[in-house]
Amino acid sequence: MRSRTVPLPWAAGYGLARTLLALGTLGTLLFSDAATLFREVATVGRYPMCQGVNSAGAFCLVSEDHYDAMRWACCLVLVIAASGWRPRFTAVPHAYVAFSVFTGIAIPDGGDQITWILTLLIVFVALGDPRRWHWQPAPSPEDRPSQGRTRWALLGAGALVVARIQMSVVYFQSCVAKLPHAEWADGSALYYWINNYDFGAPYWLRPTLAFVVDQPVGVAAMTWGPLVLELALAAALLMPQKARWALLPAGVFFHLCIAVVMGLWSFALAMCAGLLLLLTPFGHDPDFARMLRRTTRPSAVPPGEDASAEAAVRIGSRL
C-alpha cells in the first residue's frame, strides 16, 4: 500500500482570493446605479438580455422597477461572502451573483468574466470547508479526516488545479493576442494608451507618464515589460515555488498600475485573486491573526517549507 498526501485546500490563502473576488463585484454594484448598469447597447439590445441561460440571472427575475432592490440584495450577499463567514453556505450565492452581474449588466469586462469562472470553481472548494470563517487556519492534522472530507478535499484540490490552468491560459492568451499588432511589436502601444482620452491616464498622472512614453526607451519598456510578465505568469505552473513567490508581487503591482491608470479596479481585484490561486501553494495559510499580533510562535514545519504542509489528507492506493 502506497500512500500520498494532498494539502487540504481550506486555508486563509484561498479565503483571501474569495474576498477579493467579492469586493471587485461589490464595487461594481455599489458605485453604479441601475440606470448605468442596465441600458440599451447599440446593435445588441437592452440589458439584461434575458435569453437562454442568461434568463437565470438575478436581474431577470424582477421587473425593471426593482433592479435597484435586487442590486442591493446582491451587495448584501457579496458583503457576507467577503467577510469569510461560513464558506460552505455563501459560496453558491456568491457564484450566482457573479454570474448574474456578468450576464446581466451592459458594461461587463474581463474582470467580471474571470470572477464568474473563479467563483464557480471555488464553489467546489468551499462546499467541503468545515470552518466557520475562511480566515481561520486550516484544520489540524491531528483531526483525522473522514472519508467524506477526503473526497471533498480532493474535489477542492482538483478545482484549484483547474483555476490555475485557467489563469495560465488567460495570461498566455493576453500576451500572444497582442503580438500580431504592429504597435505592440514595435514597442509604441503604451504611447497611444496613455494618451487615450477614454481609457488613458488620469489628468493628475498624465504629465509624468507622458514624459516617460515620449522617450523611446521608456515607451518600449512600458510596452514590452507587460508582455514579458504575462508570458512569465503563463509559464508559472512550470516553475518552482520560489519563482512563483517572486512573481506574485510583480503581478499584483502590474494590475494595480492598470487600475490606477485606467480605472479598472474591479478587474484588478479579480486578477489579484487569480494570482493568489495561480502562484501560492495549495492550502497556503498566511495566518493573518499572527500577523496582526506581531508575535512569533514555534513552527511545526521545517524552515523553507510552506505552512500548507501542516494540514493534509493521506490517500492510499494499492500497487
Rank of each mutant, 00 (worst) to 15 (best):
M1I: 08
R4W: 13
V6S: 02
L8E: 14
L8K: 06
A11C: 04
A11M: 02
G13H: 00
G13Y: 00
Y14W: 07
Y14M: 06
Y14P: 04
A17N: 01
L20S: 00
L23F: 12
T25E: 09
T25L: 14
A35C: 11
E40V: 13
V44W: 09
V44C: 07
R46Q: 13
R46Y: 10
M49H: 08
M49A: 02
Q51N: 10
N54F: 09
A56E: 14
G57T: 03
A58M: 12
V62K: 00
E64G: 09
W72D: 06
C75I: 04
V79W: 00
V79A: 04
W85M: 11
R86K: 08
P87C: 01
F89C: 08
T90A: 11
V92H: 04
A98F: 04
F99M: 04
V101T: 08
V101Q: 10
G104D: 06
A106M: 00
I107P: 00
P108Y: 03
D109R: 09
G111E: 01
D112E: 12
T115M: 02
W116I: 02
I117C: 07
I122K: 07
V123C: 15
L127C: 13
D129E: 03
R132G: 10
W135G: 15
P137F: 01
D143A: 12
P145F: 02
S146H: 02
S146F: 01
W152N: 13
L154N: 07
L154M: 08
L155S: 10
V161A: 15
V161P: 05
M167H: 07
V170F: 09
F172D: 01
Q173T: 09
S174Q: 05
S174V: 06
V176G: 05
K178G: 03
L179F: 09
A185V: 11
S188R: 12
A189N: 05
A189Q: 07
Y192G: 11
N195W: 05
N195L: 12
N196E: 07
L205V: 13
L209K: 06
L209S: 12
A210H: 06
V217Y: 10
G218F: 11
V219Y: 04
T223L: 07
W224L: 07
G225F: 09
L229H: 04
L229S: 03
E230V: 06
M239D: 02
Q241N: 07
A243V: 10
L247V: 12
P249V: 01
P249G: 01
G251C: 02
F254L: 12
F254G: 12
L256M: 15
I258V: 15
S266G: 15
L269N: 03
A270M: 02
C272P: 09
A273W: 04
A273N: 12
T280D: 05
T280L: 15
G283F: 01
H284G: 08
R290G: 14
T295M: 13
T296G: 13
T296N: 14
R297H: 13
P298I: 11
P302L: 08
A311H: 08
I315Q: 01
G316P: 00
G316H: 11
L319S: 15
